[in-house]
Design a protein around this nucleic acid. Structure first.
Lengths: 255, 255
DNA sequence: GGCCAATCTTGATTCAGGTCAATGACCGCG
DNA sequence: CGCGGTCATTGACCTGAATCAAGATTGGCC
């Protein structure tokens, strides 16, 4: 299994961020226009530092369902999601799948990784990422201690989220899992400055099931139940409206 | 709920590590004698650095079942386990419990924490820890970048372990969970340089259940099953012998 | 060494969620 | 605008693990 990642070829429109390295001295970094910048590790960098980062960055664009990398591949690169949604997952020998996380703009892929990737990664929708060679980014981190600190904070957040997910997987009922998941999505949407009452839920029922330790059918049944109880309302195009946030919070906490 | 931690009072025998601060210039750090040192963050420090660390360290001793801290407490301290076993856990409103991890000598408690602790911590057996005030350790980390790097590596390892645990909780059967758990214990024992075929399993069936998302009864039944199938043998005193490691590995991977 | 309390094991029964199967809704495409 | 494929929903049924309920071990303590 080899990674099928694809650096952005001359795609229609937009400044081609890929292959930035050969470019000569450039006064403005394209990162300045990046919508995800203030969310990502890059958020703490100065103008000059940002430019230095640009020199070691390549852009990767993925179509929905396209694979970025496989568990077990040598971890040569780390990534920063700039647009779209990515799912990280692990497989058992017989094909059972556990999604270990969904990544949104600003999220970093590769904190947890060592010599090899510990999860596979696949695009849920059309997704863009910044790609860094790990050795080059490590070099840069040495120069920018505040960026390393930012990284540490993100690792801590991820670890805390992982513990919440363990509680969910180990001890919550199907309905509680769905309620918790929707609330996490809402909080993340709020962080990104998006509408948090009418949520965009881009992933399939199957992906949600694989994230929550449920089957597609159970996810569907729980959505129907929550709809019947008027806690949520399901819209077309993968949108879910949270009608009774309080009740959902209680459900998620096991009250 | 307030932490009930207890700094080592004059306990019988052993050098009293607690209250090291007031001591004047000391040529030798008591850390040098610490059995867990080469496993812990302190493993990368020089003699002099180790001494500096000693000046901000207090020792905490816990009896079996004693509480170190509660989820939600302000995270003023971080800890390093030097002896014994600690369990980290989270509770739901109705008392359902999820153990998020067991900590052994060399493990660090507090990487994941932010302003407040995200899990409660309780001693499984008699346990000793080094306690650091977080602000003081942060100060020290700034001075010792290689210690900070060590910390980052430990965070990455913890994150990778958390993802493995998600796969376990979300997708493995009860028997697969038990097999996986025993193998992780064996690998950790090997790391600590202990016997890895006859394992010491200090925690109760209930604790294991809370870690694996099972009930006490199911844990017990699975142990009986594995015993009947001659994959393990159960000894007194909380010891388990792994009789067929290969079969256990296959079981754990879902083969 | 024997007693008590806690822990562990085993059995009977129940039930949440899985499995299998059949529609139904939606979306991209010609 | 209708057609086909994918994804979501719903129903019937099954099963693995939970629950409830006794006993059996174990280990700490006088």
């Amino acid at each position: 299994m080899t990674s099928t990642l694809k650096t952005a070829a001359p795609r229609s429109g937009g400044p081609a961020l890929a292959d930035a390295k050969p470019r000569a001295a450039m006064p403005e970094s394209p990162c300045k226009a990046c919508a995800a910048r203030h969310l990502a590790v890059c958020g703490v960098l100065s103008s000059d530092e940002l430019y230095q980062l640009t020199t070691i960055l390549n852009t990767v664009v993925l179509k929905p369902g396209e694979q970025l990398l496989f568990e077990g591949d040598p971890a040569k690169y780390v990534f920063n999601v700039t647009a779209g949604t990515l799912k990280l997952y692990k497989l058992l020998a017989d094909g059972r799948c556990q999604v270990t996380g969904f990544l949104y703009p600003g999220d970093f892929l590769g904190i947890a990784n060592r010599e090899i990737y510990v999860s596979s990664a696949e695009a849920v929708v059309a997704t863009s990422l910044c790609r860094f060679r790990k050795d080059q980014l490590d070099e840069m981190l040495k120069r920018f201690p505040h960026m390393e600190q930012r990284m540490m904070t993100m690792a801590a957040d991820e670890l805390a989220a992982a513990q919440d997910q363990m509680l969910l997987l180990g001890r919550k009922s199907a309905k509680e899992k769905i309620a918790s998941f929707l609330l996490v999505l809402a909080r993340k949407a709020a962080q990104r400055g998006e509408q948090e009452t009418t949520l965009h839920v881009p992933m399939s029922r199957a992906d949600m099931g694989d994230y929550l330790g449920l089957t597609t059918e159970t996810v569907s049944r729980c959505f129907t139940q929550l709809k019947t109880e008027r806690l949520i309302s399901i819209r077309t195009g993968g949108y879910v409206e949270l009608l009774d946030r309080e009740a959902l919070e209680d459900l998620a906490e096991g009250i």
